[in-house]
Each structure stands twice: as structure tokens, then as C-alpha cells.
């Protein structure tokens, strides 16, 4: 009963247009206005449903998140395997764009363009978008990657056949094949930490609290506060992946 009520108020809330979040391009039908946020029907059931917020204005590009992710999750050290990494976008006065991510940002960023040529520059931390309509789980031939009821996209390393179709299907480049196991590996939102009541490593370690995650079903959660108070956007909204990684101050150059 209580849940129903909150759902209702939530829907009204959306209809009032208090939040306009990413995926505007896909909100063609008014009946699916909810889907601007979720890019699909809101999940049924009362459980948690995780979403992520990243504030680009707060990111200082220290690369600690990428490093922490590798340490926490035993990701190979080589610069070809990342669950989480940071990119620096630099838009020059002549309109050209330079993107760089040396070793995923772990070793820090050296400014490669002199100040006077720079129009603007910013850091964008990247990680799995934990899409609600994820193209990667759609293509898995055996059901070895899937979305949990809590909205986390996981890989089943004991069932994955290593066909790499999901790697091709992810528009965000968030998957890789682990060289030791031959199976696909990706961000788990540190589900092993969530179980213990801890934050995922990259959220725990972010010195500026640029990263926020929380339960989208809980109106009081940090993530919903973040969404309410910022103009948020997802990457590649036209692909309608139902991305649950929302960026504040996302520039259109970011892809």
C-alpha cells in the first residue's frame, strides 16, 4: 500500500516535469514518460534498484577510482583492461577535440596542450553504465551475463564461453576478456562490497565525492537527490540503452 502510494507520487512528480534526465530523445510517447529516467518501465517489486551519478564538475582527474578498481577487483595491471577509467577531454580554441586517458588515468594526467590554446577542459570518469536495457546482456548467447534484480549487470565467469559478442555490443567499451581466464570481465558495482554494506571501491575512494550511487527506488536516496538537483545526462542517449549512469554537466563532446 505504502509502496503504491510512493509510486503514484513518483509518477506525478515526473509528470510535473520536475526532473528532466537524459534520454530525452527517446521519450517520444508521453505514456512512457517514466522511461526518461529508467528508459523502460520502472522495476516491479520493492527491492533496491541501483543507479549511479557522476559529477563532472567535481572530478579532479586523480585516477584514484581507476586504481582502486584494479586493486579491489584484481583487474590485470596492463593498460588494456579497465573496469573504471578516467578520460580528459580538451576542446581547443580551433574547435578540435582531444581525448586522452593515459593508463586509464591511474598515473595522473599531464596537460598536453598549452593553456592559451584551450577553450575548455574537463575529466570524465567512465565505468559500466549498468544499463536497464543493456545491449550486452541482450546478445549473450548462453545467458552468462545478465541484470540482477537490483539492476546490476553481472558476468557469470563460470558459465561464460568467451565468445566476446557482449564486448562488441557494449557501446561504452566497458568490457574486456580477462587474459587469465578467457572469460569476459566487467564492473560488478563491487557487489561483494555492497553485500557487506560497504560502498564500491571507486565510490569509497573518490576524494571529491564526485561519484554517487544509490537506490533509484528510494526517493530519499543520495542518487535521487543528485538527480533532482542537477541537470543530468547519460552518454549516447540515442542508443536507448537505459543507462543508469547519470552525469552532471556532461558535454555533448563526450562519447
Amino acid at each position: 500500500m505504502k509502496n503504491n502510494k510512493s509510486n503514484l507520487s513518483r509518477r506525478d512528480f515526473f509528470k510535473n516535469g520536475a526532473i528532466i534526465v537524459g534520454g530525452i530523445a527517446v521519450a517520444s510517447a508521453i505514456t512512457t514518460f517514466d522511461s526518461v529516467l529508467f528508459a523502460l518501465e520502472p522495476p516491479k517489486g520493492k527491492g533496491k534498484w541501483y543507479g549511479i551519478g557522476i559529477d563532472i564538475n567535481k572530478c579532479i582527474g586523480c585516477g584514484k577510482c581507476a586504481n582502486a578498481c584494479k586493486l579491489e577487483n584484481n583487474v590485470p595491471k596492463e593498460p588494456f583492461y579497465f573496469r573504471s577509467w578516467v578520460e580528459q577531454y580538451t576542446i581547443k580554441n580551433d574547435g578540435t577535440i582531444k581525448v586522452e586517458s593515459p593508463n586509464g588515468g591511474i598515473d595522473g594526467f599531464q596537460q598536453s596542450i598549452p593553456d592559451e590554446e584551450i577553450f575548455k577542459s574537463f575529466f570524465v570518469p567512465k565505468m559500466c553504465n549498468h544499463c536497464a536495457k543493456s545491449p550486452c546482456t541482450q546478445v549473450c548467447p548462453v545467458g552468462a551475463t545478465f541484470e540482477t534484480p537490483e539492476g546490476i549487470v553481472l558476468v557469470d565467469p563460470n558459465y561464460c564461453i568467451g565468445c566476446r559478442y557482449c564486448v562488441q555490443a557494449c557501446p561504452y567499451g566497458c568490457r574486456y576478456v580477462h587474459p587469465d581466464t578467457g572469460t569476459v570481465d566487467k564492473c560488478t558495482l563491487c557487489i561483494h562490497r555492497l553485500k557487506k554494506g560497504l560502498q564500491p571501491a571507486c565510490f569509497e575512494i573518490c576524494p571529491t565525492e564526485a561519484r554517487i550511487f544509490g537506490d533509484l527506488n528510494d526517493l530519499e536516496s543520495k542518487i535521487n537527490y543528485f538527480l533532482k538537483n542537477h541537470t543530468c545526462m547519460v552518454i549516447k542517449p540515442h542508443l536507448n540503452t537505459g543507462s543508469k549512469l547519470f552525469y552532471n554537466a556532461l558535454s555533448s563532446e563526450v562519447r
Binding site: 546478445v139 548467447p141 548462453v142 558459465y159 561464460c160 564461453i161 565468445c163 576478456v177
Partner: peptide
């Protein structure tokens, strides 16, 4: 060629026993 490029070729049979209906590759089997 498809099977020999798999990271885990011995698990190839899974495509036949638990084919994912939304996957083009599974239905290909």
C-alpha cells in the same frame, strides 16, 4: 572457427542447452 576462438571452447555446448532467445548467436546454433 567460432568454437576455436572461444575463450572457453569446452563450454560451447551451452549455446545448445541454454540458448538465449534474444541473442542472434544463440539462435544461429
Amino acid at each position: 572457427p567460432l568454437i576455436s576462438h572461444l575463450g572457453k571452447p569446452l563450454r560451447a555446448y551451452e549455446i545448445m542447452i541454454t540458448p538465449h532467445s534474444s541473442s542472434a548467436m544463440a539462435i544461429f546454433g
